[in-house]
């Protein structure tokens, strides 16, 4: 079991969460070329090692998180709220 330290709820089993995907995708502007959109929607770095990825605490607080996790050892380095403004709220409440 992977344990994810949700900033809102505390440390929980990963079975409470659902995996989103690569958290580093930057979607291009609406008038960008088809090639850029294809790249953003379909193509992935698929990193072997530490990567930033999104998880949804779907059976908990239902908030989206950015997790820095190794895809080889499953070790987690950091967990943050997806939304930068919420990150500030979490930090202010510490």
């Amino acid at each position: 079991m992977i344990r994810i330290n949700c900033p809102y709820c505390g440390e929980r089993d990963h079975s409470e969460f659902s995996y989103g995907g690569d958290a580093t995708i930057n979607y291009p502007s609406l008038d960008a070329s088809e090639k850029e959109w294809t790249e953003a929607i379909f193509f992935r770095k698929n990193i072997k090692g530490f990567q930033f990825e999104t998880w949804h605490h779907s059976n908990g607080c239902r908030m989206w998180l950015v997790v820095e996790r190794s895809t080889v050892t499953h070790e987690i380095k950091s967990v943050k709220p997806c939304h930068p403004n919420l990150q500030k709220v979490v930090e202010n409440n510490k």
């Binding site: 079991m1 992977i2 089993d13 995996y19 990567q51 895809t71 080889v72």
Partner: peptide, 13 residues
């Protein structure tokens, strides 16, 4: 297992 991984070992859920 529902999350990306290169580990050749399964998880318990």
């Amino acid at each position: 297992d529902w999350y990306k991984s290169y580990a050749q070992r399964g998880n318990l859920p």
